[in-house]
Design a protein around this nucleic acid. Structure first.
Lengths: 193, 193
DNA sequence: GTATTATCTAAGCACTGTCAAGTTTGTTCC
DNA sequence: GGAACAAACTTGACAGTGCTTAGATAATAC
């Protein structure tokens, strides 16, 4: 039903447009009005699907977390240590290949996904990714008192490398996929399991 | 020379105002016009000291990196491994105590400090902090081929923990300084040196 | 003391997020 | 069928933003 007064699936359209703007223009270039324009709709139409810009960004970051989660689901080594390392490498590769999405997943300027109020689904999404980690940690470390520390170390190392590659001084390296992979494997291997 | 046409030290004043706005309102609330207003000066005056908002933010992040660097300089254990761990803990504590500044130091939305063009002093500042790390790594790992890997692992782990505490799911923990310290010590201890 | 330069002001453009009020469409219930 | 209602969308407006251009003022250099 084209050219109708009701758009049909504006919410999804807006999120998709936002995604593509994000990928090739960065988050700073994201504007509600522009998205509305791209969707061929008035400037205030988005407000019927999102409470405001922050809310849209929040939904976007929810998408990003789900995408990250999907990327992490793949590896199925028999050895839990190997599986954990593979997940770590996948985490870093995701960040390098989708920097804007990765940034968005951990960025509270606009639409904080871990905010008290809006912790609806997003936090659940994180805990899903986190639960994967916890599960594999339990296989490796039987002592419950030491499980959290191990999980945090693993997550920190991998997340930190990703952040340094995406937003930090390691940026020049990010383009070279092989070097990134090598770095990620080195880092994951250096964590005491 | 108050109330004079020339402000005297507008540049410094703007940066200071920006710093305090940043601390208690966040980076999203940062506006050139507002800063000008606070400094008691016209809306366009800042443009004589900064090329634009991005440039100001860049200068701000330079300040932030210097502050982080200063925090890291303190510890002087005899054992290089202990010194390295102490620096790591200091890194994390700085992030938790000055979240806005830490964020700013690694955030390229506005005024990318590691951008090709503007890598004037900022990158040097980073390399100063990085050089501290490299130096201590050399004391620990004699094999040059393995030094970079170790340095990256250490930085990644510490930076990642900081990021998860400041912008990620570990935020609720960030308020509890003792838990943060314990976490940081745990993480640094789990890195294979 | 005049010319130059750095610093600041004033006015305005194009843009943004958001609100309030009205319009169109689809749905639901008789 | 048609009336009542809610959801989706539009128009118009307000306050705020970054930034440009053009002009005013003060300190400095010669």
């Amino acid at each position: 039903m084209p050219d109708s007064y009701h758009h049909g699936d504006l919410r999804r359209t807006l999120l998709n447009e936002a995604g593509s703007v994000l990928e090739d223009q960065g988050i700073a270039a994201l504007s509600l009005r522009d998205l509305a324009r791209r969707a061929g709709v008035s400037a205030t139409a988005p407000y019927h699907h999102f409470k405001g810009k922050a809310d849209l960004v929040c939904a976007l970051s929810e998408d990003a977390l789900l995408a990250l989660d999907a990327e992490l689901a793949a590896p199925d080594h028999a050895d839990p240590r190997e599986r954990m390392r593979a997940q770590g490498v996948a985490y870093v590769l995701f960040a390098v290949e989708h920097p804007e999405r990765f940034r968005l997943a951990f960025r509270p300027d606009l639409g904080d996904p871990f905010e008290e109020q809006s912790r609806s689904k997003v936090l659940d999404d994180t805990t899903i990714a986190f639960r994967q980690l916890i599960r594999v940690v339990r296989e490796i470390e039987p002592d419950p008192d030491r499980q959290l520390g191990l999980a945090m170390t693993a997550w920190s190392a991998v997340h930190g490398l990703a952040a340094l590659l995406v937003d930090g001084p390691l940026r020049p390296v990010a383009a070279d996929r092989d070097r990134v992979r090598a770095l990620a494997e080195d880092v994951t291997r250096r964590i005491r399991l």
